[in-house]
């Protein structure tokens, strides 16, 4: 099966210049992008060895001497292509703030406590059906300097590879019904409402583990569709 990557699919993304998110003003490229045919350089991508992901890298709650504080959650889903087929054996990386909304990053000056038992980084590889699963802590909202009283809705950063270098995706996963959604220029940089809502996870009672952790499902759809559709068979 040969996959193709129509550029039209990129319409789901935010415009590069999204003035409400002020940092885009000096960083969004402004000249016309050059449309080009895909070559092997674009339609191939990295493959990961067993050294890339270690056992336990998917569980952010067991990486230190004790358990992190906060609400333990399961975040899982399926990485799929534009035809809905699971993307197997692809790398999923995530990073996030702790339960108090504080990142371990040295630049983060938010006056909320760090948690010695939480770094906030994890990675895994999807299974043969494209499924992945993390165990982590629900991140807190946190303030930022974009505008007066600006707060980011709770989110988890995701980095996913897929079948090729052009299917590469870095995004953020949000939690359902967050009251901060209407006020967040990063969330709303995605102007298509249906596309925007694809970044919001669903509460998942079926995968919630009794007496242990709530679960959220976050499916991720990457570029790539079959060059020769078989619907007529």
């Amino acid at each position: 099966m040969t996959l193709i990557y129509p550029v039209e699919s990129n319409a789901a993304h935010a415009p590069r210049l999204s003035p409400g998110y002020k940092s885009t003003i000096k960083r969004a490229p402004q000249k016309q992008r050059i449309l080009m045919p895909h070559t092997l350089s674009e339609t191939t991508g990295p493959v990961y060895g067993h050294e890339t992901v270690r056992p336990g890298d998917h569980d952010l709650t067991t990486m230190h001497a004790g358990e992190p504080l906060g609400e333990r959650i399961i975040v899982h889903g399926t990485v799929m292509d534009e035809d809905g087929r699971g993307v197997p054996n692809t790398l999923v990386e995530l990073w996030q703030a702790n339960a108090c909304g504080r990142y371990v990053h040295v630049w983060d000056q938010h006056p909320a406590p760090l948690d010695p038992n939480f770094t906030g980084a994890g990675r895994t590889v999807t299974d043969a059906a494209g499924n992945y699963k993390f165990v982590t802590i629900k991140p807190g909202a946190y303030p930022w300097g974009n505008h007066h009283n600006a707060w980011r809705p709770a989110h988890i950063h995701f980095s996913v590879f897929g079948h090729s270098f052009v299917s590469r995706l870095v995004t953020q996963m949000y939690f359902p019904n967050d009251p901060l959604f209407p006020f967040d220029p990063i969330f709303n940089s995605v102007t298509d409402e249906k596309a925007r809502l694809r970044m919001v996870s669903d509460f998942d009672l079926d995968v919630t583990e009794p007496g242990w952790a709530l679960a959220y499902r976050f499916n991720i759809v990457l570029r790539g569709r079959n060059a020769t559709p078989t619907e007529n068979h």
Partner: peptide, 16 residues
């Protein structure tokens, strides 16, 4: 399904 939109990598990616 439509594709999942991208979001900025943000300023705090380094530890991840």
């Amino acid at each position: 399904p439509g594709i999942t939109p991208s979001q900025t990598v943000g300023p705090f990616y380094a530890y991840g």
